[in-house]
Design a protein around this nucleic acid. Structure first.
Lengths: 141, 141
DNA sequence: GTAAAGGCGACCAATCTGGTCCGATATTAG
DNA sequence: CTAATATCGGACCAGATTGGTCGCCTTTAC
């Protein structure tokens, strides 16, 4: 008997990095004002990849979402209000600007009216989706 | 000089198949009541892969979205009102049920409250997204 | 009967992602 | 001052997923 292999869909999915970032951010949100969490601690607490977690947090740090303190007792803490941190922003930082249906490069039909006639309304769809991601803040999570 | 390589993001993207399907469906929508379009015609008209297009349409046909007629003068036509065909349905047919952040298998933390505390609200996000996809019909496109 | 169309399964290749290793740098405890 | 611990950043490799192709078969119009 084959064991329940759900066809894991790749499309329309958050990247692992974004996933991890949200987990970490949410943990940081629960911290006291003076406290901080190290990447190592976050990784071990949530089962995140040990070597990938610092990378993710570094990106968040240089984007200004979290504040990193070096040194022996260092770690990360939120740099902004949880209300101001949106899922859309996190995704954009870690995976870039998502496009539902990017124009395929070097395709002749990209100039065709009939085709871009479709791609434009798809843009509406995308805009709606981004709206959803924009409205979902860390505080709402 | 490296030529403008925008980091095409894979995540949060429609699959190519869904993309093609929407293009094809939209073309079928513009058809007269008795007319039909062959996969070949659709492919050449929109620059879709010739061998992949029939496959996509076949899936749509067996899902009941389009009606296929065999034979020399065969082709496809819409089998339902454009108003009743949603993007969500198309995606589900071609790529399966999308999950924003599927639980990683075999992870110990899946039982942890802190973790699934996050995944549940992510479910809300997903539900909102699916709502958007559900509301966007072929007629709206 | 022949040509053109869809139906279906298997297979291969390119791409993307995720994960790891490596080192360098900065800061704090003692 | 020194050592330990933290962040930072690049390069690299392997696995997974997607997408595209080839093949053969059935059905229908002429």
């Amino acid at each position: 008997m084959v064991a329940f292999t759900r066809p894991t869909v790749q499309m329309l999915r958050l990247s692992r990095k974004s996933d991890y970032a949200l987990v970490a951010l949410k943990a940081l949100r629960a911290l006291g004002p003076g406290d901080a969490l190290s990447a190592r601690e976050l990784a071990s607490r949530f089962g995140l990849p040990v070597d990938l977690t610092p990378k993710v947090l570094a990106r968040l740090a240089q984007a200004g979402l979290v504040q990193a303190t070096l040194g022996k007792t260092g770690g990360y803490r939120l740099a902004r209000d949880a209300e101001s941190i949106t899922v859309a922003e996190v995704v954009r930082i870690l995976d870039g600007d998502p496009e539902l249906a990017p124009c395929r490069e070097g395709i002749l039909e990209c100039n065709r009216i009939a085709d871009c006639d479709l791609r434009h309304p798809l843009g509406n769809l995308q805009r709606e989706m981004m709206n959803v991601l924009d409205r979902m803040t860390l505080a709402n999570l």
